[in-house]
Amino acid sequence: MPLLEIKDLHVALDDGAEIVKGIDLTVESGEVHAIMGPNGSGKSTLAHALMGHPAYTITSGEVLLDGSSLLKLAPDERAQKGLFLAFQYPYAIPGVTVTSFLRSAMNALRKARTGGEDDPIPIPEFRKELAAATEKLKVPRELLGRYLNDGFSGGEKKRIEILQLALLRPRLAVLDETDSGLDIDALKTIAGGVSDLVGPEMSAIVITHYQRILNYIRPDFVHVFAGGRFVAEGGPELAEQLESEGYDAYLPEASNGAR
């Protein structure tokens, strides 16, 4: 059974505008899929809809994780089933330190795993895991004591997203433009960190505009997303082709001949 199956998914906004217009995607365990597309094509909409954001309505289609539907589940229940979204624009939670948030999130997932019994992670164990992950991802220790994403730079936010990913250990990670806002060294560290997590335990969907991040997280499949649909699919070579030729060939204007 595939880890994730998306079948003919349609997503609309509150005002009825359809943004995702029927996509199919199957992700097996251990696979990396890249979704590449121009700005405004609906990539984040797809990511939010997968996670269960209430502003995005799934008007038809199906999303199965391990063969069972996610569509009726609240976002926390989806997270508890192993889905993780690294946000393109993470939100700030003033007054809550990164450390205390991480511990609460880990405990929430542990609680779900024990079927609702509190099973808080022992503090020494938490410290150890946190220290290992921050070192690996080169997260400045100073960030951990600050309020979550409050006044963080774009790059700091992205680092903290991946720190969360490393500690929460999802089975499917959706990375929404994690590369934007990162300089080349940071990208190398962070994407390398994600790549090390990919394996039988974790698959990934890497949403990006640029091919760059795919040098560090090698995709098994590349899907080109434009106008709410996958317009081309292939292997890693497709990403390189997009990088040199751009998206023009896939934009609706191009097919209309209207340049």
């Binding site: 996670m51 926390d76 946000f87 939100y91 939670i93 999130a105 929430a108 969360q164």
Partner: peptide, 8 residues
């Protein structure tokens, strides 16, 4: 939504 997406 952000916090719930982390399992809370």
């Amino acid at each position: 939504f952000y916090l719930m997406s982390r399992g809370l």
